[in-house]
């Protein structure tokens, strides 16, 4: 039996908002450890992996590992009907009926909404994602997640030439990270320097560079990842020319959301 409760719907609402526009289906793995979610976009260029440890829930009971594929668009729709302070209950029964029940209960007026989701197939996930050693990455950038979101918005507004495939080039050189994109009639570069942590200890931009690195990505994907900012104050971007880039948001003490993206290669 699986029975989970969260006294505030916000966390789950934010998770769904952070993944549902780019990923249509996800695999949810429930175990004694917690919930592990994985999804891949249809072109297999981006992957999201989420961990919410059992401690993230107010009540967590999972006496047998359970893996289910769910449609994220439908879930996002249901969660948009939930208020931030609704109590969520997630239940799946022993009889393997291939459905999971999400219940939203308003603590104020006692109204209860019940959604049953059928399991769907998730082709290609879950994958075994190893933690590559730090030395495999040429550069790491940590910055406030709100700043990263602002950068993505600026680049999108400039790079929006009606072409869905606007490319952003991220390059790290010494103590600077540059975001570069091309618009219809010009280019745009946003330069972020490492900030002194003394002035604003809570919002540092930190750059660790082993080698200069410059990689091209789809801006559309990066823009979508930046929605992870509702889950964490900081984002860490790990860059390597040999591995997928990782955009990681730590969720308090209880887990993380990691987006993996492959750079574009010129043919």
């Amino acid at each position: 039996i699986l029975e989970l409760r969260l006294v505030q719907a916000t966390l789950f609402k934010n998770v769904l908002e952070a993944i549902s526009d780019l990923f249509s289906k996800a695999n949810f793995d429930f175990s004694g450890t917690g919930l592990e979610l994985q999804a891949m976009d249809t072109s297999h260029v981006a992957l999201v992996a989420l961990l919410l440890r059992a401690e993230a829930f107010n009540h967590y009971l999972c006496d047998r590992d359970l893996s289910m594929g769910l449609n994220l668009a439908d879930m996002a729709k249901a969660f948009r009907c939930a208020n931030n302070d609704d109590i969520i209950t997630i239940k799946a029964e022993e009889d393997w009926s291939d459905t999971v029940t999400f219940t939203f209960e308003s603590p104020e007026d006692g109204e209860i909404s019940i959604f049953d989701f059928d399991f769907v197939g998730t082709n290609g996930v879950p994958l075994e994602i190893p933690e590559f050693p730090e030395s495999e990455y040429q550069a790491k950038v940590r910055m406030p997640s709100a700043k990263f979101m602002r950068i993505c918005k600026k680049l999108s507004s400039f790079g929006d030439s009606g072409d869905r495939d606007t490319v952003v080039i991220i390059s790290v050189d010494k103590e600077c990270v540059n975001f570069f994109t091309r618009g219809k009639t010009g280019t745009s570069t946003i330069v972020c320097r490492q900030t002194q942590t003394v002035d604003k200890p809570k919002e540092p931009t930190l750059i660790e560079m082993k080698e200069q690195v410059s990689l091209a990505f789809d801006l559309r994907y990066m823009n979508s990842f930046s929605k992870g900012s509702t889950l964490s104050d900081q984002v860490t971007i790990s860059l390597s020319s040999n591995l997928p880039a990782v955009f990681e948001y730590k969720i308090a003490e209880t887990g993380y959301i990691r987006y993996y993206m492959l750079p574009r290669i010129e043919e």
């Binding site: 072109s43 981006a46 290609g124 591995l243 997928p244 492959l262 290669i265």
Partner: peptide, 14 residues
């Protein structure tokens, strides 16, 4: 240019 590689090239199936 196009991305030629897919995620599966880096990560294995469970």
């Amino acid at each position: 240019g196009k991305t030629q590689l897919r995620m599966e090239a880096f990560y294995s199936f469970n």
